[in-house]
Design a binder for these strands. Structure first.
Lengths: 111, 111
DNA sequence: TTGCTTTATCGTATATTTGCGATATATAAT
DNA sequence: ATTATATATCGCAAATATACGATAAAGCAA
């Protein structure tokens, strides 16, 4: 027993990992690209652009929303999604502070 | 049939997704943190630090290496891993150019 | 050679992800 | 009320990921 011991790691590590998992699929990156380029609320068009079934796209949107990467408001038969830029900033900052500070000090590869 | 249609997306989207998948696990982030802090070649110590079995850590190291995030040289009974900073820079650049340029133009949330 | 240490790989069990069709839900139009 | 449209959710099948113990491989020490 005892599988997936993700809870053994720090919250920070888990948060970053969750963020990464959210963008760890080309379909979700493609969705984010569409949302970023339009920078407005859309949904139906995404289904037409992606080579995936409507239900699958909806599921990816749900995951992106759960991860906080996009905001969405359901409005009856129409939904409205758009990028949560603040979340991306937060991720970028988190990601940078983890590694970049040390990178500057030591550029050389040791392997 | 036809599951996992990742090949339907652009190479760029797949590359970015692969990178994200490599860091989409707290154990791998923890490994990268150790390597970044020391900035030298190690392996055995990683197993002692992480709450995972030796074989599991080895597998995570393999995935990180496959993704190009770390370099490693096997030296008989001892292996040597260290961070590939260049790969991180590439990812950061790729990630930024995808979204940041538009973010500046339009900060407002529309949802 | 024989054993010791260190890391990689194999086999396997379990968990999670991905994808789709079918169906539900919710509004607008007729 | 009925129909049409748009999106979400459910249920299932297939693929991947995660983890571990056992074992292999490769050098070092005696």
């Amino acid at each position: 027993m005892a599988f997936h011991k993700k809870e053994e790691f720090t919250q920070r590590e888990q948060d970053l990992a969750n963020f990464a998992r959210a963008i760890a699929h080309p379909a979700r990156i493609a969705i984010l690209k569409v949302l970023a380029q339009r920078n407005e609320c859309i949904c139906g068009e995404i289904v037409e652009i992606l080579p995936l079934a409507q239900s699958t796209v909806s599921q990816h949107l749900k995951e992106l929303k759960n991860a906080g990467l996009i905001d969405g408001s359901v409005d009856g038969p129409k939904s409205c999604y758009c990028i949560n830029w603040r979340a991306f900033e937060k991720f970028n900052a988190e990601f940078s502070t983890l590694f970049t500070s040390l990178k500057i000090k030591n550029e050389k590869a040791c392997c």
